[in-house]
Design a protein around this nucleic acid. Structure first.
Length: 492
RNA sequence: GGGCCGCUAGCUCAAUUGGCAGAGCAAGUGACUCUUAAUCACUAGGUUGUAGGUUCGAGUCCUACGCGGCUCACCA
């Protein structure tokens, strides 16, 4: 035990020896910090007190200014900060003296009267105080806060207690998620919960996490998307469903990727991808307005305006506009590969077909330039085995991805509901897999059985909530919007 | 996984060419009854991420490892 902790334990023992429980089971709080501030601000003009009102406040001691026979303490509670003035002749000598047992980081309760100091600051003039919970470690530095990125992520509680900005990000996250629910609930969507542990992880091309189900003596996978289960529900007759849930992909970490992340997926019967595009821009802008009161955000140095309508451009046109690449001139995998090599693109995939190469070109030329919210429309069929083909052009599907701030934030299609085509698409995926592409969509027989019973024309959507939050809270890394991001363990 | 950068007191940061490891906050003692990054005086606090190596001498140079950040690859 280090010296600082030993000092605090000694104070704790002193309290106990005096018959004081340093961890009492409850407090008698009657007012929050914000309540007291409101009371003081309602004082009559020229008055510095409210006749007869007494309050009990409680919170963590975040600053302390010792003035001899008077001490100022700043308490932080869930509503904010409030200053407390403890004076010897208001508390009595014994209780003032025992203030020396109060350290930064302790939780204390204070009984007193709302008042203004000479400078007009709302303050509780204390008549008594109580220890509510003794802290055995010093909190992070009071002025600079906690800066070390690793410490902030490993010990998020320290980040939250030290950094106002962190508290803002995560209260915003909560408000955004509840605004999304309100938006969808108001439009007749039914919120559902589907299986996290799955026999066959489908709905996306990603490596899954594996786990083991002891009772059944079978392997299970953590879900990599919500799609196939939600579509089963549309088959079952739920016309508008959504799920806000955690999904898991056994892949790398980056400023845009965390292995577990929160996805919103929704499915709307009798809608197509154009309907979904309108829904997305309306939902995101409404949620931004409700949760943050603004539709304009500063993200990585760019000003991003979420006001609808968002730009719509086909992938085909975007490649011409941003890359000078005319896809029609390179209609085969071989021709496109030669062209991309000639252009010197990095990381050209060896497997995966024409669609994968189009995706590579898109990532290189288009994606980084889509700073303002943009719907990129009509993708190669090979990349989208669950989306409906575009009438008149069977190489493309009715799909868009929504880009904001230079990365993908959403993905939507007119859902494929032709079970014959769906089965052949799974077959195509299997061929790609056999050709060496290990991240493809896997056949799910029960899903096929569902489709074979008939699914109405349906529009579907997936939005990465964490990425959306990055924009809305103006945070450059996904780890800044996830309370407990995945980190390597400390081996000792 | 590759490349680059970082790791010094509980926290935030210094340390010149390889030459006695420092400061602020926090802590302890004392002064101070309207302060608010309170102020003032004094005190204590270190296996410089870990393990080796070079050197008379290593926070500093070399090697390996650990953790983190950025970036590339993969992915949403």
């Amino acid at each position: 035990m280090d010296e600082l902790m030993a000092q605090r334990v000694a104070k704790l023992d002193t309290l106990r020896a005096a018959g004081v429980d340093p961890y009492p089971p409850r407090s008698t709080r009657t007012h929050t910090a914000a309540d007291v501030t409101a009371i003081v601000e309602a004082f009559a003009e020229g008055s510095d007190h409210a006749g007869g009102v007494e309050v009990d406040v409680a919170g963590r001691v975040v600053a302390r200014r010792d003035m001899g026979k008077a001490t100022f303490i700043d308490l932080l509670d869930g509503s904010g900060r409030i200053q407390v003035l403890l004076r010897q002749n208001a508390l009595g000598g014994h209780w003032y003296e025992s203030l020396r047992l109060v350290d930064l980081g302790d939780f204390v309760g204070v009984h007193g009267v709302p008042m203004k100091t000479r400078t007009g600051q709302p303050t509780v003039g204390a008549t008594s105080w109580t220890m509510l919970a003794k802290a055995l470690h010093a909190p992070p530095e009071k002025y600079h806060g906690l800066a070390d990125v690793e410490a902030r992520q490993r010990h998020r509680y320290l980040d939250l207690m030290a950094n106002e900005e962190t508290r803002r990000v995560f209260t915003t996250r909560s408000r955004v998620v509840s605004a999304i629910r309100r938006f969808l609930d108001a439009r007749g969507f039914l919120e559902v919960e589907t299986a996290v542990l799955q026999e066959e992880p489908g709905g996306a091309a990603a490596r899954p996490f594996k786990t083991y189900f002891n009772a059944l003596d079978e392997e299970r996978f953590l879900r990599i998307s919500l799609e196939l289960h939600l579509k089963r529900l549309v088959v079952g007759g739920f016309e508008r469903v959504y799920e806000l849930g955690r999904i898991f992909r056994n892949e790398g970490l980056s400023t845009k990727h965390n292995p577990e992340f929160t996805m919103l997926e929704l499915y709307q019967a009798y809608a197509d991808y154009y309907d979904i595009a309108r829904l997305v821009e309306e939902m995101v802008s409404t949620v931004a307005h409700e949760a943050l009161g603004s539709m304009v955000f500063n993200f990585r140095g760019d000003e991003i305006d979420l006001t609808p309508p968002w730009r719509r451009i086909t992938l085909h046109d975007a490649l011409r506009e941003h890359g000078g690449l005319e896809l029609d001139e390179f209609p085969t995998e071989a021709a496109l590969r030669v062209e991309l090599r000639r252009r010197g693109l990095p990381a050209i995939p060896e497997t995966g077909g024409w669609g994968k190469l189009v995706d590579t070109a898109m990532s290189h030329y288009v994606e980084p330039r889509l700073i303002q919210p943009t719907f990129l429309l009509d993708y190669p069929v090979e990349l989208s085995p669950l989306a409906k083909r575009k009438p008149g052009n069977p190489r493309l599907v009715e799909r868009f991805e929504a880009f904001i701030g230079g990365f993908e934030a959403g993905n939507a299609y007119t859902e494929l509901n032709d079970p014959i085509d769906q089965r052949s698409r799974f077959d195509e995926q299997l061929k790609l897999r056999n050709a060496g592409d290990d991240e493809v969509e896997m056949l799910d027989e029960d899903f096929m059985f569902a489709l074979e019973h008939g699914m109405p024309p349906t529009g579907g959507l997936g939005i990465g909530i964490d990425r959306l939050l990055m924009i809305l809270t103006e945070q450059p890394s996904i780890r800044d919007v996830i309370l407990f991001p995945q980190l390597k363990s400390l081996k000792e």
